[in-house]
């Protein structure tokens, strides 16, 4: 690929990204209210989206690998456990991440 073609490719990727980000706002412009079904989806989607994103982040965990996904499972439980205990977002994230790094670098190394 020439640099010119690479720049065109980047422009295409920008267009694709912006299409997905701007489309809902363009279709349901603030002039007239969005259809009720869309407002309903806007209200109820967030819990589903974040559950989906958790699965998305963990999608490449291989249960058949040497560690059988144990580091991920433990780190997820630690994150959730610390969060239920103290309800402090930053603390839960630091605890879960530190736990995962220790598991990967020392325990399952």
């Amino acid at each position: 690929m020439t640099v010119r073609e690479q720049l065109i490719t980047v422009a295409i990727l920008v267009a694709a990204t912006m299409l997905t980000r701007f489309l809902p706002f363009a279709v349901f412009s603030s002039g007239k209210p969005a259809p009720r079904i869309v407002m309903y989806l806007g209200r109820v989607l967030p819990p589903a989206i974040f559950s989906m994103l958790v699965v998305y982040c963990l999608r490449s965990v291989d249960l058949m690998s040497d560690s059988h996904g144990l580091p991920e499972l433990i780190a997820v439980l630690v994150t959730a456990g610390v969060h239920l205990w103290r309800r402090q977002t930053l603390l839960s994230i630091v605890a879960g991440t530190a736990c995962y790094m220790i598991l990967l670098q020392f325990v399952f190394a």
């Binding site: 982040c57 997820v76 977002t89 879960g96």
Partner: peptide, 8 residues
Amino acid sequence: TAMFIVIA
């Protein structure tokens, strides 16, 4: 990942 877990 941890951030999404907390939010979820």
